[in-house]
C-alpha cells in the first residue's frame, strides 16, 4: 500500500491577503545623494507589493524636471561625512569631481541614473506626484516634467491620498 502523505510543505507567506499597506516619500532635495534614498526604498516597497507614492516638492522638483533630472550634483561642501578638510571643499572643480565619482560608484553597482530609475519605479506601479505650489513657484509645466508623472497635487490632495501610509520626508 502506498501513501500520498508527505512531510508538510513549507510555503513562504507572500502576504497576498494583506492588502492595505501603503508607503509615501516626500522628496524635497535636489542633490544626487539625496535623490537616491527615496528611489531605492520605494523600489524595495514596490517589490514587497506595497502601494507606493512619491511627492516631489521644492528642490526635489529637480528630480522630475526634464532639464535637471539627468544632471543632479553632489557637493562635498559642508558635508563632514566626506572626511575631506572642509576648507578644500569649496575649491573650483570639487563638486564636479565629487559628482562624477559618485556617479561612477553608482554605475559600478548597476544602479540606474535618476530618470531611468523613475521609469523603473513607474513600471513597478509607483505613483509620482508633483507639488502644485512648487510647480507654480518654479514655473514648470507638465510637458517639462517626467512623462510618467501621475499628476500635480496640492498638499491637501496629497494628504488625502496617503491616508494611512507610512510617510518619510527626505
Amino acid at each position: 500500500m502506498t501513501t500520498t502523505e508527505t512531510a508538510p510543505t513549507i510555503v513562504p507567506d507572500f502576504g497576498d491577503d494583506t492588502e492595505d499597506r501603503k508607503i509615501a516619500f516626500v522628496c524635497s532635495k535636489g542633490t544626487l545623494d539625496m535623490a537616491y534614498p527615496a528611489l531605492i526604498m520605494a523600489s524595495g516597497a514596490l517589490e514587497q507589493g506595497v502601494e507606493t507614492h512619491i511627492f516631489f516638492t521644492f528642490w526635489g522638483m529637480d528630480m522630475i524636471n526634464k532639464k535637471t533630472m539627468g544632471s543632479l550634483k553632489f557637493t562635498p561642501v559642508g558635508n563632514t561625512a566626506t572626511h575631506m578638510p572642509m576648507a578644500l571643499t569649496p575649491l573650483p572643480g570639487m563638486t564636479t569631481m565629487a559628482t562624477s565619482r559618485m556617479r561612477k560608484q553608482l554605475e559600478e553597482l548597476d544602479i540606474p541614473d535618476v530618470p531611468t530609475f523613475l521609469e523603473h519605479l513607474s513600471d513597478m506601479g509607483c505613483h509620482l506626484w508633483a507639488c502644485k505650489m512648487s510647480v507654480d513657484m518654479f514655473g514648470l509645466t507638465e510637458e517639462g516634467m517626467i512623462d510618467s508623472l501621475d499628476g500635480i497635487l496640492n498638499v491637501s490632495d496629497f494628504i488625502e491620498i496617503i491616508d494611512g501610509a507610512q510617510t518619510m520626508f527626505i
Binding site: 513562504p12 507572500f14 497576498d16 517589490e47 514587497q48 507589493g49 513600471d123 513597478m124 506601479g125
Partner: peptide, 15 residues
C-alpha cells in the same frame, strides 16, 4: 519588461 513581471507574478514578483 517589469510591468509584465507584476502581471505574471502578482504583487511580489521578485520573490
Amino acid at each position: 519588461p517589469t510591468k509584465d513581471l507584476f502581471v505574471l507574478f502578482p504583487k511580489k514578483p521578485a520573490r
